[in-house]
Every structure is written in C-alpha cells, then in structure tokens.
Design a protein around this nucleic acid. Structure first.
Length: 332
DNA sequence: CATCAGGGCCCTG
DNA sequence: CAGGGCCCTGAT
C-alpha cells in the first residue's frame, strides 16, 4: 500500500463537520465511511480504482483548508484489477481524485446567494448560522447512491440496513487503511453475471429485478454519470425517470445529492411530509402541496438546500436529545 | 397464529 | 390517474 497526501482549499465559508457527516443518513453495520469532529474516512472509487481517503480539517470556516491523505494499491482486495502494482500515483490520477473530491463535496461552490437568501427569513436564521458553509455533499458516485436509494424503497430503516449489508458482504469490496476497515459498493461490472435469484437470496425482494436491470444499464452506458452532471435538472430528471425502478422519490434523491441540484424539491414522500409538518408548522400533518408552495416561496431555487440545512440540524440535535415526535416518524 | 404497513414503483384498466 | 401487487420483516 502506498500513500499520497495533498491539500485542498474549499471556497469560504466552509463547514467541515456539516459537510462530511450527515446524521440523517442511516448507519449501516458494515461501514462505508467514518467520521469524528474534524476527521473523515471513506473508500472512494475513481475510475476503476478504489482509494482510501482520510480528510482532515486544517482550517476554519473562513479560512478553510483540508488535508487529504490517499491510500491505494491495497493488498487485500478481491479484485486484482483494482490494484496496478505501481507504487507511485501518476499526477494525472491525482488530479482526477482531487476533481472528484471537489465535485462530491462541493468544495468550489459559491454559496453567497444562498446565504443572502437565508438572512431574509428570520425564522431559521439560527439554523443557517449554525451550519454556515455546510455543503450538500455526497460521498458516493451515482451508481452507489442509486443502490442505496433502491434498498430504501418501501422498507423500514432496519430492513434497508439489512439489505445493504447483505449485498456488501457478498459483492462489496472490503479493505483496510489507516487501521480502519471499510466496505465499498461494488462496480456494476462485478454484478454482471449474478442472477436475479442470487440477489433475491439476499432478502432484497423485488428490488433484485431493479438492481439487475439498473446495473446492466450502467454497464451498457445507458446511464452516464458524467453527462448527467452537465445536464439541466429537467433533462437529468427525464433521463433518470426512464430507468426501471426509478420513480419520483429516487430521482429526487439522485438529483439533489449526487447531481447537486439545489431546487430538486418536486416530490415529498409521506414520511417526510410528517417531519416537515412538525418542523415548519408544529403540526402533525400539513398538505404536501402547501409545504412545497411555502418552501419554494421562501427559498426559491435553493429550496431543497434550505430544507437540507433544517433537516440535518434536527438530526444533529437528535444525537444528544430525545425528540419524541421525531423518534415516532423515523421508524427504525 | 394471521394480518399489515413500511424512507416506492410498475403495471393495468 | 387510481389502485392493486410486490419481497420481506417486525409489530400488533
């Protein structure tokens, strides 16, 4: 294994912990990443290779600076193609990794318009101030996030965790760096010859068919993450909705998290509606249309981003404090 | 023991 | 456009 480190300088302001840890995401047993204040670890796929990343906070909100340590050439990977035997990482690959980190964690995003907007509506100003500089980041590539979205469909959190873990044990890449063990979601190619029945054996139910067909679409380049990244929200949504097993909620997740469209607020799932109703109205249930109208009125093209701040804020609070109405709606 | 809904989506009529 | 069915699981 070899190691390479470098620095990255996010656009100011930047909130390290808010960006690298999202407490609303479900914690699976087989870790895809790890976080402690000021430090973050994950396995990241760039091209066909897998890298271990340790990202450390070496600055502050107004002078952000990240130290990135990249580990590669693991000895213990199942797939030999993922290591190339070279000990030094070529400059071109290093640039690719940097670009990918910058994209997934939105390090270059200019949030000044959004920040101005959040000052207009006083009600949530404390929340926006608390997380000033937080990004809508996504540790995963599009395929990986799609897999996670599929196991989330029509299941309780507990079962989603079980489904993902079953899949990871069988098909994920497992490796260790910086004295920590991590899993990474497989490349589509690694699932190519796995039958639907084999997948069903992992208790993922009818989702097996979705994963099978979606994986084929990625292998056949019917979906290309990099061209989707360049599209408008509407065209990207159209493309995603064509995929078998991708509906309004899954495409919203992908548009917002993986493709970073801040206005991807077209769809509100019933369980989210209940949480939004409490957060925004202190009421058990407000109509989804009203919620949508009100949020868009206040936050316009930043509607989903604004909701993300308020959403994550309550889940941060939940770490130290019991919030009864929230516990009820999360349904582990 | 049976029944049911769940952090959606597909398919049919 | 509405509504039934889908895999499986834990709750009732």
């Amino acid at each position: 294994m070899t190691i390479n480190s470098f620095f990255l300088y996010p656009k100011s302001p930047f909130h390290f912990d808010g960006t690298f840890h999202k407490p609303s995401h479900f914690p699976n047993k087989l870790p895809l990443d790890d976080w402690q204040p000021g430090k973050y670890w994950q396995l990241m796929r760039v091209g066909e290779k897998l890298f271990g990343l340790r990202i450390e906070d070496r600055g502050d909100v107004y002078n952000p600076k990240l130290k990135v340590t990249a580990y590669f050439n693991f000895d213990n990977l199942r797939d030999d193609r993922l290591k190339d035997g070279k000990t030094k990482l070529p400059q071109s690959e290093l640039e690719l990794i940097k670009k990918e980190i910058i994209y997934r964690y939105e390090l270059d995003q200019d949030l000044s318009d959004f920040i101005k907007l959040t000052k207009k509506n006083k009600r949530f100003t404390p929340v926006f101030n608390r997380w000033l500089g937080m990004r809508n980041s996504c540790e995963h590539n599009l395929y990986e996030l799609l897999i996670i979205s599929i196991v989330l469909q029509n299941a309780t959190v507990h079962r989603s965790v079980q489904m993902l873990d079953n899949l990871l044990v069988k098909y994920g890449d497992q490796t260790e760096f910086d004295h920590k063990k991590f899993y990474a979601i497989w490349r589509p190619e690694n699932l190519k010859y796995v039958s639907e029945q084999k997948l069903r054996n992992l208790k993922i139910g009818y989702r097996a068919k979705f994963i099978k067909r979606l994986t084929e679409d990625f292998i056949d380049k019917k979906v290309d993450e990099f061209s989707l990244r360049k599209m408008t929200k509407e065209s990207a949504r159209n493309e995603l909705m064509k995929l078998y097993g991708v509906g309004p909620e899954t495409s919203r997740i992908l548009l917002f998290e993986a493709l970073h469209h801040y206005d991807a607020f077209d769809h509100i799932a019933p369980w989210q509606q209940k949480i939004y109703s409490q957060l925004f109205y202190n009421q058990p249930l407000v109509s989804a249309n009203k919620i949508k109208k009100d949020i868009i009125k206040h936050y316009g093209r930043y509607s989903m981003l604004a909701v993300h701040y308020i959403w994550e804020d309550i889940f941060w609070r939940r770490k130290n404090e019991k919030i009864d109405w929230l516990e009820k709606e999360i349904r582990l």
